[in-house]
Structure formats: structure tokens, C-alpha cells
Write a protein that binds this DNA or RNA. Sequence first.
DNA 1: TGTTCACCGTTCGTCCCGTACTATACGACT
DNA 2: AGTCGTATAGTACGGGACGAACGGTGAACA
Lengths: 179, 179
Amino acid sequence: MSSKPIRLTGTSYAVLALFDQCGGEATSYDLKQALDTSIQNFWPVPHTTAYEEPARLAKAGYLTARQEEGGRRKRVYALTEAGREALREWAADPSASAPQLKEEAVLKVFAGGDPGPLLASRIAWHRGKLEEFGEYLDAVRGVEGMEGQERALTVGTGYHQKMIELLESLAAEVARAEG
Amino acid sequence: MSSKPIRLTGTSYAVLALFDQCGGEATSYDLKQALDTSIQNFWPVPHTTAYEEPARLAKAGYLTARQEEGGRRKRVYALTEAGREALREWAADPSASAPQLKEEAVLKVFAGGDPGPLLASRIAWHRGKLEEFGEYLDAVRGVEGMEGQERALTVGTGYHQKMIELLESLAAEVARAEG
DNA sequence: TGTTCACCGTTCGTCCCGTACTATACGACT
DNA sequence: AGTCGTATAGTACGGGACGAACGGTGAACA
């Protein structure tokens, strides 16, 4: 079954988890869509990963691949028992690598950039996300098979709210220091 | 001066910014120390970067390198005018790439892991960070030339507090859903 | 039937990053 | 003096992550 053994990374499991939530079968494009509207908030991946990673996982036997004939010749991937098992095992282990935040705006402030515009535009960005999520949530709420999506969006909403609070308090602090 | 042109990434500027805060001159080891106690909170970098990135920047003329003779033969890097200028220019640009959070614990919860232990240990981790920062802050507060460090630690403190709030509300939500 | 545009998919090069390892300094213990 | 342990300092390397750029597909509309 599994030909080449590979090392599974966090991203691998993120992909496996999405397949699992999609009922075990999906195309790379489905995956990309699901990524953008769910786990991007706490596990960002570039869209190319939606194409590369399933191929990698298939080579190792965690997925099976089947290519459609006509048109765009999409590849449809499906979880194997090995894939499902690997996912379960990983999720059951309560340890997790340290969380990371990458925030270029704050880095710029640290480096001497003008905090006003930097923080303001970042806050606006997070507000935009909140709005976007509101719409997704309306579309997804209560729909069967979308519970995962919904939970992820809820988490994302909380995250963006907290970030807004953080950035606003930073902005206030800076303003106070200058005023 | 600058021989090989290279692409400057966020990490490059992070390194340049730290050199700037160290008075323009530092060894890779100094850099590593500074990284760990300041920008890791909003721009994580592995320690090997403290050795690789300065070498890359030096090749392109943003730093100069000078190797000590005796003992460990440390390399001492110093900001050039080009480096300082590049940093200024970047920091002055109010645009910034989208912020990213990578949180494996939340990903595991999303993938079906037991939220209780996952969230609890994560919360404990953030609390540990807060304590650690409290100590650093005590050591650094009011010390001349450490204002950058201090600001970074203050930001980090706020960040960890917000994360604790977020994780606690998630845990409460999960508990409610199960209760 | 051609143009346009959104959708779908891949390639490629380089940066990132963790693991593992080497080596130096220095104090403590025997 | 020797050697052990530990903190400090630096390096090598392989493969995953990432983004820019591009190439095909198909449906709508002129």
C-alpha cells in the first residue's frame, strides 16, 4: 500500500483533517476552498499546498488518487484507512508545538515605523475579516456536514476580536506616550 | 559595495532592526539572545537564522562582517548605511503582509482531539510565558538602550493575555456544549 | 467565433526551519 | 592535574513552506 514513507507535518494533518470533514473525498480545489474558509485562521497554508500536499500524502498511502478523464482532469482524492488512523492518532496526542504569531505590522512598529497608520490599517483588516466571517457563518449555520467549518469560523471570529482589542490597546498606549 | 543583490524578507528586516537596536553592531549570538527576548512574540525565527541571515545580508552589503581572531572566532557584524537605509524605507511603508497565527492545539481540536487537555496545557504555556516576561521586564525596565526590548515584551505580554482569554472562552464554550 | 474573465491547476526557485552535531569555555568535584 | 557536566557558541544539511508567475478551461456575452 504505502510505498514511500514520508514525514507528516502539521500541514499534512491539516489536509487530512479537511478530507475527513469533507466526508473523506475531495478534489484539491474543494480543499482550497475549505482551507480559505476554515483553518486559515489558526493554520495558514498557501493554495499551492492544496495541490502539492495531497500528492505527497497519496504517495505514502494516506490518500488514494483518481484522475477524472474529461475537461480539467481533476484529481479526486480519498482518505484511506491509514490516513484516517494517522489523523486520529495525532489528534489524540495532547502535546502540540508552540503557537506562533507572525505580525509584520507590529514588527514595523518595533523597527521604528509610524504606529498610527500601521495599527489602524491592521485593525481595519481584522474588522473586514469579522464581516466576511459573519457572512460565511450565516451561510453555514445549521447546514449538515458543515459543523467543522462553523466551529473554525467561530474560533476565527474570537481570534480577530482579540487581535482588535490588542491592537487598539497598543494604539492607545502609543497615543498616550506621545500625547 | 553590495555585491550580490538579494530579496529582503520580513526576517531580513527583523534582523536588521535588531542590529539597529543593538547600536548597529553585534555577533550572531547577541542576535540570538535578542531574538528570544523580544521579537519572537510577533515574528518567530529559529536560532539558525541568527547565523545564516547576517551572512546573507553581509553578502549583499547591508552588513559588514569582521571575524575575531582568538577563541571562538566570533563574527561581529555591523550595519552599513545601506542596511540602515533599507530598514528605514521598509518601516516607513505603512503596508504589511497579512498576520498569521499558527496554533497546532486548536488545529487538533478542529481535527477531533479532546479539547480539555489541549486547551488547558496551552493556557498553562501562555501563563508560563507571562511569568517569564515579568522577570525579563523587571530586569530591563528603565535600563538605557533596552527600550526596544521593553516595548517588545510589553506587546508580548498583551498578546499572551489575549490568547489566554481566547482559549479560556473556547474551553468554556466546549464545556457548555458538552455539559 | 472571438474576446473576456473567472475558475482551476502546476512549476519553479528560494527561503525557512528543525534536527543533529561540533566545539569552546569554565567551574566543580576527585 | 584530570574529567565531568553544563552553558555557551556555531555549523551542516535536507526537506518542507511559500509565493510569484504562468498555462489551461470553460462559460458568458458580444
